[in-house]
Structure formats: C-alpha cells, structure tokens
Nucleic acid binder design. Structure first.
Lengths: 239, 239
DNA sequence: CGAGTATACATTGCATGCAATCGCCCTTCG
DNA sequence: CGAAGGGCGATTGCATGCAATGTATACTCG
C-alpha cells in the first residue's frame, strides 16, 4: 500500500503531533467524535495523553482541511450539509473518472503491473462480500480500499492526494448506505464495469463507468445523522 | 437566496500562526525563499519577529500541503520536478475543465450574475494587456485572477479550494512563460474561447476549451530554475 | 593521506506557564 | 417578565525552557 513516491503530502511523519492528527481523524471516522461536537485542546490532550502543543498543531491541520470548523470557543467537528455533499460528489465524480482514465491509459501502455489489476478484481470481490454481510463499517472499508486502489493505479500522486481529501471529507459523516437493496446490488456491477474498462485499456469506458458510479453513489447518499442536537460536551469533565 | 458560506478551508483566521503561514507563502511566491532552500524554525521566527511556536504551526501546514518537504534538519522549500509538473497539469486540466463546465451550466440556468461574466471579459483583457507589457509577474498575477474568477463562477467551493491548492503548488516555481511569442499570442484567444463557452451556457464547449488551454499551458511550461541541489533526495524515489 | 569514529552542537519536539480574550451566566434595571 | 450589562471563568494564543536526536566536523588511527 505504501508505494511512495513524490512528496505531495508527507505520510510517514514521526512525532506525536502527527499521531494526534491521525487519532483525531480516526475518532471522526468511527463517530466517536460526532459532527457538531466541540473540541477543546485541553480535553483532547488529556484524552490522548499529550500536552496541548501537539494537539494545537493537529487541530490546525484539521482546520485547514475543513474537517473541523471554527466554533464559539475553539473548534467543532465539521458536519456535511446536503448542499456540501452534492458539491463534493460532483468533484469526486470528475476526479474518479480521471483516475479510471489514467489507470486505463497506463494499462494500455503496459505500465500497469498485472498484479495491480488482479488486486482490483479481488477488491471488487471483497466489497461484494462485505455488502452481503450487511456490515456497514466493513462495507465502507472495503469500498474505500477499492477506490483507493484505483486512485493508486492512476499513477498521479497529486490526483491521489486530492481524492484522499475528498474521501476524508465525505467519510466524516458517512458510512455506505446499504438500506437500498437496489443500490446494494448495483454497486458490484458498476465496480466491475470500471475495472473492466481499466483492464481493457479503454480510458473512455473506464472513465464514464467511474463517473456514472460516483453519480449513482451521490444520489444514494443520505447524510447520516444530519443534525445531532448541540452541546455534546467534549469529554466528560468528570466533575 | 443567500447560502451560508460553506466551510471548506478557513480563510480569514486571526492569529500570528496564520500570519506566518501567509508570510511564508508570499515569500515562496516572490522567490525570496527559493526552492531547495532550507528553513529553520528559529530563522523564520527571527525573520518575522515571533516565537517558534506559531512558526512551527505554519510549517506544519506547509508540510501537509507539500509546499515544503522534510529535509536533513527541518524542512526545505519544495521544488517541482518535470514529472511532478506533468502530473499537476493533468490534474489541473481536468479541474479547470470541470470549473468551466459548471460555470457554463450555471449560466445556462440563469444562476450566474451577468456582472460575473462581464468581470471574466475584463479579466481576459487584463491578461492580454499585461502580457503585452512583457511583465512576467503582472502577467502571472492577471492570469491567476482570471482563472480564479472562473473557479469562483463554478459555484463549487470544494472545486475552488482544490484548484487553489494546485495553483499554489505550481506557482511555487513558476511565472508565466512569455518567452514563446506563439504561446503569448494564443493565450488570449484560448481565454476568450473559454469565456465564450461560459457566456453561451455551453458546458461542453467551455470545458473542452479550458482543457485545451491548460494542456497547452502544460506544454509551454518550463520549470524555472531546474537546479536540483539534492534537497529532496533524503528518500530515494525507487520508482 | 584516507577512512572510520567520537564528540559537540545546531535544531527539533514537546511541555508548561502566563497573559489576553471571549462566551456564559447572573444580576439588575426598565 | 424581558432585556441589557458586568463579572467570572473557561479557553485560546504565544513564548520559553529543556531534553532528545541526528548532523557535521574534527580527530585519530591505519
């Protein structure tokens, strides 16, 4: 998974500031810090067992990325409005279409290792299996892994980084929407169409399949827990 | 209707950490801190008259954005390799095509204020005038303003933010390449084609014109000062 | 004279302290 | 009963100190 690469955004940073950053993102993803919840430096620092300084740096990055927003006194976990989600999916559709096109182009030129393509097929199978278990978390995980693999196959580190940003922003409030059986059935078919286009080295086919897939995902998207009532205190002050 | 400004990346932050961040970016843009140059927290802090703490935060953000890279002892100003530039222009072409398409769509739906379109025309004129003065800095500035206006006209804050990131990354080492008279002449024509497509409300025309324009810009791009003094070479790009 | 090694030092990374700021709540007045 | 104002407290923002770490230099030995 770590085929790095050109310096676009450094991944393997040491230090607890980066650890805090990763930890916070993880808490967002698993909903432990819910959208709208307020974060205070002291509470996070106590939670993670570090001082406020690395927490400050991590929050600064999250603020720059839009994963948290300025709140009354400090920051709050960002929530996605319906309009924001719509805009994100428009961008995402174009980016994923480009990724599929580039991957197909690399395949046509023989620049894509066969192992990578086989990995795509396995990833599609994994999503299908996960969806059938009706495990939302595992499905989201497998789905993300597939899309990540396509992004990596494109061979453009800046595109890959941009895709990660978009996914992160969407994943803050989303898990795969499996309630709709029609969508759950269509997802694998659409995934296969993308991979087939890549395998065939057909950029147009792969790109349009990817675009259609993301647009369908955008239509199926329902903002999870849109408005959790406010004032979920940070961590319990244990008072 | 006035839609509340979506928080994608907070712009007007107070505090000297943000001021340091802006100041550093400005120094990069005007070449005062050249690519490959090493930055130490203490030196920057002394230069800007603050302590190391806000400098640390600013450098952390620049590191996350890829504008500086980890160096032997701290960080160095990032330089663009030819391969990186190529990848950036591929991404940029797609993003700007999307922006032009969305702007044209908004125009077709009557959602784009006529004043905005007139502003696009004026921006095109401004670029033309600046190019004729052979002032590289002014030309780059005017060109960026035009592209920014198109990005804003698209009405998608996430796309706009992503475009800014790409522009920033390219602008680190680039000014408009005016040496090529053929390119200098074609630039205004291409700009007009994009704006014409938007004004006509024709997404396909606007998008393809934008894509062609950026691809031409990518071909005309020559990495300014391609001296690579072994800065990024701490990790081997074993590609 | 070159290579290997030890040492000193520049520099980062984090914690802590202190002052400034802003929201919240309680009080007070209309 | 509602609104305005003031004080208190929570929280941020920045500076500084100290320890850890990796680099570059100087030194020694072959």
């Amino acid at each position: 998974m770590y085929t790095r690469r050109m310096a676009v955004s450094s991944e393997s940073q040491p230090g607890s500031a980066h650890a805090v950053y990763v930890a916070l993102r993880h808490r967002f993803a698993e909903g432990r810090y819910a959208p709208g919840q307020r974060l205070t430096e002291a509470a996070v620092a106590a939670d993670l067992g570090v001082s406020r300084t690395p927490v400050r740096e991590a929050i600064g990055r999250l603020l720059a990325e839009g994963l948290v927003i300025p709140a009354a006194r400090g920051v709050a976990v960002a929530a996605l409005t319906a309009a924001e989600a719509k805009h994100l999916f428009v961008l995402r559709a174009t980016l994923e279409a480009l990724a599929a096109e580039l991957a197909a182009t690399r395949q046509a030129r023989g620049q894509l290792p066969p192992a990578d393509i086989d990995a795509l097929d396995r990833a599609v199978d994994a999503v299908e299996a996960a969806v059938q278990t009706h495990d939302a978390h595992a499905s989201a995980q497998a789905n993300l892994a597939l899309h990540r693999a396509i992004g990596a196959a494109a061979g453009n580190p800046f595109l890959e980084d941009t895709l990660h940003r978009v996914w992160d922003r969407i994943a803050v409030t989303t898990v795969a929407n499996l309630d709709d059986p029609h969508w759950a059935g269509a997802i694998t078919e659409q995934h296969r169409a993308i991979v087939a286009g890549i395998r065939a080295g057909d950029p147009a086919a792969a790109g349009s399949a990817a675009k259609a897939h993301i647009e369908a995902a955008g239509r199926a998207y329902k903002p999870a827990r849109e408005n959790e009532p406010r004032t979920a205190a940070t961590t319990q002050p244990t008072r």
